[in-house]
């Protein structure tokens, strides 16, 4: 399978007042098309930062990120926006649906941003994807009328409606109970198997990461296990208090 994500020597620093926090400290990673990958690690290990960089919503301080063969450092804001619109889908921990739009309109929204599809084709596409996530009866309901699990299903449908190469999900089950979370992961896995869409999701829940075909483990901004073999980096033990 060809690589859809290539991360090379990526470092990411965040200014925090007068200090600089190093979120990623030289990450190398390759993810192939069709993989169902979990990025695991404790809070503060750099999972979200890595997802943000792959999702082109942030840029690295050092190193390079390529998405579907496109080096993100060579793109301006419009280029990155287009890459996100056409190649990537996002699922958020807090669902992040547009409250004033109903299920159909939320799912339809990325298609409207893309343009070029007539109304009938758009409707058919949205209804098919909403049906795939099992929300046809809720098609005209607003997000505040849905349960957490249903909202996350809408988010999945919205992420998939444009037929992206990669779907990124940041802690997609963190705000759901364990049964609903398991159902969401099962749904994602089913869609991955069906369409071959690459799924990359972050989690620190061991139960959730059991569903992944590959688990990439992060600790203190470094990949300690890329899920393809031996651990890649030694993480220094935290210093003992004096």
């Amino acid at each position: 399978m060809p690589a859809v994500v290539e991360v090379r020597g990526v470092e990411k620093d965040y200014p925090l007042g007068k200090l600089t926090v190093r979120a990623l400290r030289g990450v190398d990673l390759t993810i192939d098309a069709g993989e169902f990958v979990s990025i695991a690690g404790p809070s503060g290990s750099g999972k979200t930062t890595l997802l943000n960089l792959i999702g082109c919503v942030d840029v690295p301080t050092q190193g390079s990120v390529s998405v579907d063969g496109q080096a993100t450092s060579s793109l301006d804001d419009n280029g990155l926006t287009n890459l996100r619109l056409h190649k990537l889908g996002f699922i958020f921990q807090t669902f992040n649906l547009i409250g004033v739009l109903d299920v159909f309109q939320n799912v339809e929204f990325p298609l409207l941003l893309q343009g070029g599809m007539d109304k009938a084709a758009r409707r058919a596409r949205v209804e098919a994807i909403v049906d795939a996530v099992g929300l046809t009866p809720q098609l005209r309901q607003r997000p505040n009328e849905l349960s957490g699990g249903q909202r996350q299903r809408v988010a999945i449908a919205r992420a998939l409606v444009t037929g992206p190469r990669i779907v990124l999900a940041d802690e997609p089950t963190a705000n759901l109970d364990s049964q609903t979370g398991a159902n969401i992961i099962d749904l994602m896995k089913e869609l991955n198997a069906k369409d071959g869409t690459t799924f990359i999701f972050s989690t620190h829940d061991a139960e959730v990461m059991r569903h992944a075909n590959r688990v990439i483990r992060l600790a203190d901004g470094l990949i300690v296990d890329d899920g393809r073999g031996a651990p890649r980096a030694e993480v220094p033990a935290p210093a003992s208090p004096a």
């Binding site: 287009n82 056409h86 958020f92 941003l113």
Partner: peptide, 8 residues
């Protein structure tokens, strides 16, 4: 942020 992330 969400809208920008999904491509607006």
């Amino acid at each position: 942020g969400t809208l920008r992330a999904i491509g607006m």
